[in-house]
């Protein structure tokens, strides 16, 4: 496990660096606020409504599809590492696995889940 220690240290160093720089900057810079300046930027006009509105469900769908296919990729990593020991059985199993997933992919295409209008 000690091999992972430097990764944790890198994480801490990175967070520390960013926080220090951001805090140092915010101590130096002027902060003169007023109501107009604090309003969200909308090309100079008065903001019309907030940003907490409904957005296309398509983005959510993409996220769900990503989870499905990413899990597939997760299964492929250990397979790829130990492929030489698995031999022909491993190859056939993975062909079956990918074919099953590909049927699902064709279903997505057929349902037009990947079309953006």
């Amino acid at each position: 496990m000690t091999a992972y220690l430097p990764i944790l240290i890198a994480l801490l160093v990175a967070v520390g660096f960013v926080v220090v720089v951001m805090v140092a900057s915010s101590l130096v810079v002027p902060m003169r606020r007023n109501a107009i300046k604090n309003s969200p930027y909308e090309c100079g006009i008065e903001p019309v409504g907030g940003a907490r509105q409904r957005f296309p469900v398509k983005f959510y769908l993409v996220a769900v599809l990503f989870i499905l296919f990413d899990i597939e990729a997760v299964f492929l990593y250990p397979w790829a590492v130990s492929f030489r020991q698995l031999g022909l059985v491993g190859l056939i199993e993975m062909v079956l696995f990918i074919v099953i997933l590909f049927v699902g992919y064709l279903y997505l295409l057929k349902k037009r889940a990947l079309e953006w209008e």
Partner: peptide, 11 residues
């Protein structure tokens, strides 16, 4: 950039 005014939108 270090010396620029910082700004956080109210909402």
């Amino acid at each position: 950039l270090f010396l620029k005014e910082e700004f956080i939108p109210a909402r």
